[in-house]
Design a protein around this nucleic acid. Structure first.
Length: 908
RNA sequence: GCGCGAUUAGCUCAGUUGGUAGAGCAACUAAUUUACACUUAGAAGGUCGGGGGUUCAAGUCCCUCAUCGCGCACCA
């Protein structure tokens, strides 16, 4: 491996990212240090260290990662690695988003193209299976790509917006909001996407400027007032004409009603006076179409006007004679315009540009339609939250500086949006997503899932406990007197907990504890259900043998492999939870069982992987007669109940992301430790979709902010500053760039000079430049190694003035950049490190040291300086260029620890 | 209509609280086997979008105009 100079062979060749990166990533994964718990267990992080947590904005499972995702991963990984090196208890939590409409329409397109089928041809179940398969494949691609970016994500906590844990969160959130009257079902004018066949929210609209015509005409010859419109086809649905109350021209007509036949359709028009009408616009009179305009619907409500729907879900006319019925709105428009002209009713045809609402995902022109949908009321005062509305809850944390937004100019954008916010439509007529957790019975009454509180309890002290002997799933060891007293005391405590049902393990120590409790709280001991499945884990012939001197019995039992293995225990845990779903009781459910098995139950609730049950059990050992609370959500069941067919807006589940990923609604250890999260890093294009909704959900459901700082990154454009798009053919695949130049080079190119919120141009030249830098660093390491291999490292050599000045200079730089790291100025830090390493350290310091080492005078000082300086630079560069720095640190220099968990080289 | 951002070398962009204009790339001149040719040294290149103001001093602060980009609102 080593040549004469004791230099590793690989160091003699140029740096090869290809041969290095995957190997290093594997080493990081093997270490487990992406998981903060393992960092604590292995002693690289102090248990009482300050937590740092961040959720990954979950990429949509619609395909692959693009350069925008790459930038996001780079910035967040820099934040994460920096925090980890500072010794913080660091969690960066990965996940993906089911992106309901986007994913479903993608699969629909593929289905149409490859098989010529529509989703209805497959049916809901089969179609969803296809979507799930597609989502799984996308997910795998995305995860693979994130790993290649070097992302130090804790994969053991990976979440999906549509998995079981997140579904529990969604049902809980929905039920609580419904209970508080924040979620309601109502008839409203909604944004209907005729192509996607679903309702969408105001935020999913894209306004496109189009040329169109403004027509001014009368409904009929003897109608007294002219009106203007760009959509004559909707006028067959008019039920009123509204005028400004102060408009002298029309005052005489207000309150009068007229009949007319408009293009063959009989209409009945009432003249009303309404404040919302501007008398200077057009004719100063507004034809009111309550079914197809938001504003008109509001006027109609105020004046009690009838609503006539004339356009259907396919954007076709649903009224009129042969000339109109079933025609597309565009055709109907021409027909009606021609009719107006023919009748001599047209007064003016003007060219105007107008903003047309289109659907973000499908591009279809939105048709405002009256529909029965689910909404979130943003203006209702909430008793539990100081009578504040959701709107106010969203504004307060920013105003009160609890949440810092970087760059701060986005604060105004945020305020602007919240203040203009209308009720949020959350139901979608698509199949892929969380089903709305509402059931209807035969009479149409609404039923929601119910929350059930469960208390896990451990039995009182048993004889085996007191003798420190193993007592597993077969032990018949009875309670001691102490144990009975403990059980009685627990019963006293539980009196106020409204326990209405008790389930017990079938072993005597649990059963006896349960019976004592039952008597204390006034329940019939006969009513206790005994579940053999809920017994303690099996320990085989360890039964009744003494506990180990060191460590916990659970670990010893598992490692002895004499009883049940983890897979068997997990199976049993799952079956107990399954059984719990069908338990009916009004109040709190008490489960009396055992330490080991209860810990596994807790681990399951917290989402701990079974491989880590043992470590988890060590953390959460239950004392005799202690309890642990969790909740279950029961969907309504019974004859004739049907669930709402619609699904939820994908942003509903995304809004819960900072805490649903940490196990909410369970009161998990993760939730306590890591929420509110430290930072949210994301693109400023989703400030409304996502950031605002997370603040809404978190402040309402948890009463706390979801994150302390929001860091927005900008758009990544191509080298010419153009937006990357399929039609321009200028989309760059980050993986191609990595293959060519290495991840470290791409990371540096993406970060240098790119401040928060500003767009950046990514050109290949820039990446190439940083791949050269990687090689430079490689050769610096080689030089240092070659020239210091004979240095006696057992003593520290004194530095001369010049070399001491170099070290001082580096420390000053480190101090400067540490301050900038804390201010999120990564773009500056990366550039400064690059510049110092190359143009000062390599070009000046190393050149100077060459002479000294060759001449012999000051040789030891120079060598000592080099071996001191290089590790400082490697540490500081690690968050930016993790692979090459780790390779130099771990493989070449053969340091004991991974650089990943080494200390950041400067403390302030 | 309201608001935000950008305008600095040929190109892409830095420039922290006002204190003598900076980097990378490109182009130019040289070095020639070196820790590194994925190299080094050097020179060249800018009235910091226009105009006005505050100040001893403005790329930086204020006003105004222009161009480009973006967001929101209005859309009868």
């Amino acid at each position: 491996m080593h040549n004469d100079n004791n230099i590793p062979e690989k160091l003699l060749k140029p740096y090869s990212a290809k041969d290095t990166e995957s190997r290093i990533y594997e080493a990081w994964l093997d270490s487990g240090f992406f998981n903060p718990d393992i960092c604590v267990e292995k002693g690289v992080t102090k248990a009482d260290a300050e937590p740092f947590s961040m959720v990954l904005p979950p990429p949509n499972v619609t395909g692959t990662l693009h350069t925008g995702h790459a930038l996001m991963l780079v910035i967040e990984d820099i934040m994460t690695r920096y925090a980890r090196m500072q010794g913080k208890r660091t969690l960066w939590l990965p996940g993906t988003d089911h992106a309901a409409i986007a994913t479903q329409s993608k699969v629909e397109k593929i289905l149409e193209k490859e098989e010529g089928k529509r989703k209805q041809d497959l049916g809901r179940e089969e179609f969803l299976a296809r979507v799930n398969k597609f989502a799984q494949e996308s997910h795998d691609t995305i995860v693979g790509q994130a790993k290649r970016m070097g992302a130090s994500l804790d994969w053991s906590r990976e979440a999906f917006t549509l998995d079981a844990t997140r579904n529990l969160a969604v049902r809980t959130a929905f039920s609580r909001m419904y209970k508080d009257g924040l979620i309601y079902r109502g008839h409203r004018i909604v944004n209907w996407d005729p192509k996607g066949q679903t309702v969408i929210s105001d935020d999913e609209l894209v306004y496109e400027e189009r040329k169109s015509k403004l027509y001014t005409f009368k409904y009929s010859k003897d109608f007294p007032i002219s009106i203007s419109t760009t959509r004559p086809e909707t006028k067959v649905g008019d039920t009123a004409v509204a005028v400004d109350p102060t408009d002298e021209r029309y005052k005489q007509y207000v309150g009068k009603e007229y009949d007319a036949v408009f293009c063959g359709v009989p209409i009945h028009i009432k003249i009303v006076a309404d404040e919302s009408v501007e008398k200077d616009f057009g004719t100063g009179a507004l034809g009111v179409t309550p079914a197809h305009s938001q504003i008109d619907a509001e006027i109609a409500t105020r004046h009690n006007l009838p609503t006539i729907q004339v356009i259907n879900e396919y954007a076709k006319m649903m009224i009129g004679g042969e000339n109109l019925l079933g025609k597309k709105v565009t055709e109907a428009r021409e027909t009606i315009v021609q009719w107006i002209r023919d009748e001599g009713l047209m007064e003016k045809e003007e060219d105007v540009t107008q903003n047309v609402s289109t659907a973000e995902r499908t591009g279809a022109i939105i048709e405002p339609l009256p529909k029965l949908q689910w909404f979130i009321n943003v203006n209702k005062p909430i008793a539990d939250r100081g009578n504040k509305t959701l709107k106010e809850l969203m504004l307060a944390p920013i105003r009160e500086k609890q949440i810092e937004i970087l760059p701060d100019r986005f604060e105004n954008v945020y305020y602007n949006w919240v203040n203009n916010l209308r009720d949020w439509c959350i139901s979608r007529q698509i199949w892929y997503g969380h089903r709305i957790p509402v059931w209807y019975d035969k009479d149409g009454a609404i039923h929601l899932p119910k929350e059930r509180r469960v208390l896990l309890a451990r039995h009182g002290e048993s004889e085996a406990n007191s003798l420190r002997l193993f007592a597993g799933g077969k032990s018949q060891s009875p309670l001691t007197d102490t144990g009975r007293a403990q059980a009685k005391e627990l019963g006293q405590k539980l009196k106020s907990e409204n326990v209405t049902k008790i389930i017990s393990s079938n072993l005597p120590r649990a059963r006896e504890t349960a019976e004592i409790i039952a008597r204390e709280i006034g329940l019939d001991p006969q009513s206790i259900e005994e579940w053999a499945d809920y017994r303690e884990y099996e320990v085989g012939d360890l039964e009744n043998t003494p506990w180990p001197e060191k460590g916990i019995p659970f670990r010893t039992a598992i490692e002895s492999q004499k009883g049940e293995n983890l897979a068997q225990i997990e199976q049993r845990v799952i079956s107990v939870f399954k059984k719990l779903e069908s338990v009916e009781t009004e109040g709190t459910l008490l489960m009396v069982g055992h330490n080991g098995f209860n810990c596994c139950m807790k681990a399951h609730i917290e989402g701990v992987q079974k491989e880590r049950f043992v470590e988890f059990a060590e953390l959460c050992t239950m004392e005799n007669a202690s309890t642990h609370e969790f909740m279950l959500m029961h969907n309504p069941s019974g004859e004739g109940l049907t669930q709402d067919e619609d699904t939820l807006d994908t942003w509903f589940s995304s809004g819960l992301w900072t805490f649903s990923t940490l196990g909410w609604p369970q009161k998990t250890h993760d939730l306590k430790m890591f929420h509110p999260t430290s930072v949210l890093e994301t693109g400023h294009d989703i400030i409304f979709f996502w950031v605002a909704r997370m603040i809404l959900m978190s402040t309402y459901l948890l009463g706390e902010i979801p994150f302390k700082t929001v860091y927005f990154h900008g758009l990544v454009r191509d080298e010419k500053g153009r937006k990357m798009s399929k039609s321009l053919g200028n989309i760059v695949d980050p993986i191609t760039l990595i293959d060519k130049y290495g991840t470290d080079a791409l990371r540096m190119a993406m970060i240098v000079g790119v401040g928060p919120g500003s767009d950046s141009n990514l050109g290949e030249e820039k990446i190439k430049a940083y791949s050269k830098f990687a090689n430079k660093l490689w050769n610096i390491a080689r030089f240092v190694m070659e020239n210091t291999s004979k240095l006696d490292t057992t003593t520290t050599h004194t530095l001369d003035t010049e070399d001491q000045a170099t070290i001082d200079e580096i420390n000053a730089l480190l101090k400067e950049i540490t301050k900038e790291m804390n201010e999120y100025k990564f773009y500056l830090v990366a550039e400064k490190l690059y510049h110092y390493t190359w143009h000062t350290f390599a070009d000046v310091v190393i050149e100077r040291s060459k002479n000294k080492i060759a001449n012999g005078t000051g040789s030891e000082s120079a060598q000592q300086m080099l071996v001191t300086a290089l590790p400082l630079l490697l540490r500081a560069l690690h968050p930016f260029m993790p692979y090459i720095t780790e390779e130099l640190w771990n493989t070449v220099y053969n340091e004991k620890n991974l650089l990943l968990v080494e200390e950041w080289p400067c403390k302030i």
